[in-house]
Computed example of a mutant assay.
Amino acid sequence: MATMKSVRTGPVGEIEVVDVERPVPGPKDALLRIRACGICGTDTFFLHLGGTPMGPGGSMVPLPLGHEPAGEIVETGAEVTGLKVGDRVVVNPQGVPSGIIGCGGAHGAMSEYLLIENAEPGTNLGVFPNTVPFDVAALNEPMAVARHCVNRSGAGPTDKVVVFGAGPIGLGATIWLKLRGVQHVVVADVLPERLETALAVGADAVVNSATDDLTAVLTDLHGRAANALGQPRPGTDIYIDAAGAPAVFQATVDNARWGAKLVMVAVQKKSDAIDLGGMLRSELTLIASQGYPTEIFEVTPELVEHHERFAKLISHRVPFADVEHAFGLALTPGAAEKIVVTFDGQDTLDGRV
């Protein structure tokens, strides 16, 4: 029996690297050798839980981790069409019958190999060229999340936008906004190094919301407007919450002009109150953005075309041999921005891991 190493949740706040049976593809399946896999906030959420409550009586059971992979096909079933051994691919983790990969399903992509059931290009696999390193290709899934957020915003060329949170989703949204031709994009965060990255990927301006007067900065950059009562407000058209902190929601309500929009893409932290009166005074439209209903492979060609720009989102490349260190960084607030775990033989944009 061939085995492979795979990462799953362990005791609360820890991972386990275990030896499991290497999957054998059926006639409709494909087997991938994973070459890179990103670590997401969802992974750390499961680690804080210590697994998933799927055991008897709701008891916690270990959960295979990893849903941001890029790899190469090493075996295909006899009935698979449109895919071949050697293809470099990204994955739709929601596109297999055994459950969402790395998020409660039977398989996790933080493994040496990954089985894709009912393998089909454009449904659960997307092929990309060898001009793109695997570590950058592994950004495909989170960049689809960011793209859906921008799509939900309806942002157009004349809009003025502020993105709260310069993590991978916020920065990805910034890139998509600028590629979409949006006139002016401001990124707000409290960490100077994140703001430097925001400028590097194309933000027109940044604001440190821990030290700067957000209202004054936005008014200076986006001009003066008013809410429905005529009270002065910055001329910002769209607010994107990629941070999830209650302070972001309140800052948006406090600054929203008449007819502004707020798009929530971050997992929201509990808040004691929402200022509905403030929303009313601005006729603020609240838009929720969840996942990527259609965007998972729509983003792939542009990720390929602009891969050097997207590569700037990766703060740490950690080899699989040090995967416990990688998750330790992910669990430490402020220690890393975007971590991609690389596997043996994986090429990266700059040759470093």
Rank of each mutant, 00 (worst) to 15 (best):
Y239P: 05
Y239S: 06
I240S: 04
A242Y: 07
A242V: 02
A243Y: 03
A243W: 02
G244T: 07
A245V: 14
P246W: 04
A247W: 02
A247P: 07
A247K: 14
A247F: 07
V248D: 03
F249N: 06
F249C: 06
Q250E: 15
Q250L: 10
Q250C: 00
A251L: 00
A251V: 03
A251Q: 15
T252D: 05
T252W: 01
T252I: 01
V253D: 10
V253M: 06
D254L: 05
D254T: 09
N255L: 12
N255A: 12
N255I: 05
N255F: 00
N255E: 01
N255H: 07
R257A: 14
W258L: 15
W258F: 15
K261Y: 07
L262S: 04
L262Q: 08
L262G: 01
V263S: 00
V263F: 02
M264Y: 05
V265T: 14
A266H: 06
A266R: 04
A266N: 08
V267C: 07
V267D: 12
V267P: 06
V267A: 15
Q268N: 06
Q268K: 03
K269S: 11
K269D: 05
K269E: 13
K270P: 09
K270S: 13
S271H: 12
D272V: 04
A273G: 08
A273W: 10
I274F: 14
I274R: 04
D275A: 07
D275R: 04
D275E: 12
G277V: 12
G278R: 01
G278M: 08
G278F: 01
M279W: 06
M279G: 11
M279Q: 08
L280S: 11
R281K: 12
R281M: 09
R281N: 11
R281Q: 11
S282H: 09
S282Y: 10
E283K: 09
E283S: 13
E283I: 07
L284G: 02
T285M: 05
T285W: 02
T285N: 10
T285Y: 05
L286I: 15
L286A: 09
I287E: 00
I287F: 02
S289K: 03
S289N: 11
S289L: 11
Q290W: 13
G291H: 09
G291S: 14
Y292N: 08
Y292V: 02
Y292K: 01
P293N: 05
T294K: 13
T294N: 12
T294P: 06
T294M: 09
E295G: 01
I296A: 07
F297S: 09
F297V: 07
E298A: 15
V299K: 11
V299G: 13
V299W: 12
V299N: 11
V299M: 10
V299A: 09
V299F: 12
